[in-house]
């Protein structure tokens, strides 16, 4: 009984240890394979993050470049022209005009006043502080008012749903998208009417810009810079960008942006 019991105990312990060792080996193998897979997964995520960050950086540089181009164009086409005209008047002031210097001074004052006003508008339009201080909606209303001033276009803004405030950075990017779209329409579409709709839902914001301009064939589109910028900016907001257009039927841009981080 004793010997048989002793042998059994030894066998029991040895067999038990072998079993535990075997199971631990299986477990270690599972953990090893799993950890390797996990490391590969995280490495992929890191790579994707890096690619995304690079894309974002490139987009930001391109956006900045585009902004500088806009400023340059605005100064050259508008303010520069007005100041040149004012200079011309000043030059002719020395050669006694029939109307007398009083009229010319009034004209010069008027032109310089307009140039200062344009410069101020340009500055406000370009400055992110305005958007950060007043919010996206106020800045958008201001932009629409500015563009409606010359009465060349009829720009309408419709807000559906309860407006939700986004973070300052998001609002700035969104504002730049609308600005880019409006400038593109004005420059290329030959439209007389632009309708902007902001649809706020619980989870996303849908922005629609529709014009009655000449439109273009989207399938022949060779990625113009303006559209690329808008797409890249929408990507920065994790949004979806969609454009629908046909020759003679105007253009509709739809941007869907999630209001909260998923």
């Amino acid at each position: 009984m004793f010997n048989q019991g002793k042998e059994s105990i030894v066998f029991f312990i040895v067999f038990g240890c072998i079993m535990i060792f075997l199971l631990l080996t299986i477990l270690t193998l599972v953990i090893y394979i799993y950890t390797n897979k996990q490391q590969r997964y995280f490495k992929n995520i890191e790579e994707l993050k890096l690619i995304h960050e690079n894309d974002m950086l490139r987009s930001q540089v391109e956006i900045q470049e585009q902004t500088f181009q806009n400023i340059s164009r605005e100064i050259h086409d508008n303010i520069g022209q007005k100041l040149s005209l004012a200079k011309l008047y000043l030059n002719t002031l020395s050669g006694q005009s029939a109307e007398g210097p009083g009229v010319q001074v009034t004209e010069i004052t008027k032109i310089i006043g307009e140039a200062i006003s344009d410069l101020s508008d340009l500055s406000r339009s370009m400055s992110s502080e305005v958007i950060k201080n007043n919010g996206f909606l106020k800045a958008l209303e201001f932009e629409i008012n500015q563009l409606n001033k010359p009465e060349l276009f009829n720009i309408k803004l419709t807000i559906i749903g309860e407006p939700i405030f986004l973070t300052a950075d998001k609002e700035l990017i969104l504002f730049r998208i609308v600005q880019e779209a409006l400038h593109n329409i004005i420059k290329h579409a030959q439209a007389s009417s632009i309708h902007i709709t902001l649809h706020f839902t619980e989870s996303f914001l849908q922005l629609t810009l529709a014009d009655n301009g000449q439109g273009f064939a989207t399938n022949k589109l060779n990625q113009p810079n303006g559209l690329l910028n808008m797409k890249k900016r929408t990507d920065l907001l994790n949004g979806q960008f969609d454009i629908q257009s046909a020759l003679g039927k105007g253009t509709t841009i739809q941007i869907k942006i999630p209001l909260y981080e998923s």
Binding site: S8, F12, G16, M19, L23, L24, I26, L27
Partner: peptide, 18 residues
């Protein structure tokens, strides 16, 4: 896995051990 897995074959062979 460890607790039950190690006990499973041992409990099956108890009759032969004792």
């Amino acid at each position: 896995f460890i607790g039950m897995g190690s006990a499973s074959p041992l409990s099956a062979i108890i009759d032969y051990l004792a």
